[in-house]
Write a protein that binds this DNA or RNA. Structure first.
Lengths: 71, 71
DNA sequence: ACTGTGCGTATCATATATGATACGGGAGGG
DNA sequence: CCCTCCCGTATCATATATGATACGCACAGT
């Protein structure tokens, strides 16, 4: 049984970990995927129920497959 | 490079395949996850950019892990 | 022919993700 | 002490996912 709130937090945490692991700033990633920096901050804080589109854009900016973020 | 529109269509197709594979009707799945039947129809037609919450609810109704739908 | 059921789709209202902007704080360099 | 980044967060506007409802069609059973 999946708890979607937990899942959102997990996805957010993975994104942040990948980003910092690659030494990228929030600004840089936001710029790469044409997402508002403030929005990306909210997302990484796990405070938004993101859409597939947004997840894909961020995955592209981080240069990782979807499966790396959604497990 | 991930194309989010393609990804949405893939996810929609997997959901439909799993549902029909289990012999469930759209109504039944919609009822199980408390989602509008019309909305689930739209989703399976690949016409909406679904949120993580919605995907999780549907996965629960289909009794499959997230990884079965998002690859 | 009639009825019930499942599905797709259209429309409108509502909730909410995202865009846009602004402010404050911490860290580091001059 | 100033700057300059980077980050978190708050607020408001806008775009859009979803809820709610309705209609038409195909199909099966009677």
């Amino acid at each position: 049984m999946i708890n979607y709130q937990t899942e959102i937090r997990h996805i957010a945490a993975r994104m942040k970990k990948i980003r910092t692991g690659k030494g990228l700033s929030v600004q840089e990633v936001a710029y790469r995927c044409d997402i508002e920096r403030s929005n990306l901050s909210r997302i990484e804080a796990g405070r938004t129920n993101l859409t597939i589109k947004t997840i894909c854009l961020i995955c592209n900016a981080l240069n990782v497959p979807l499966s790396e973020v959604v497990k």
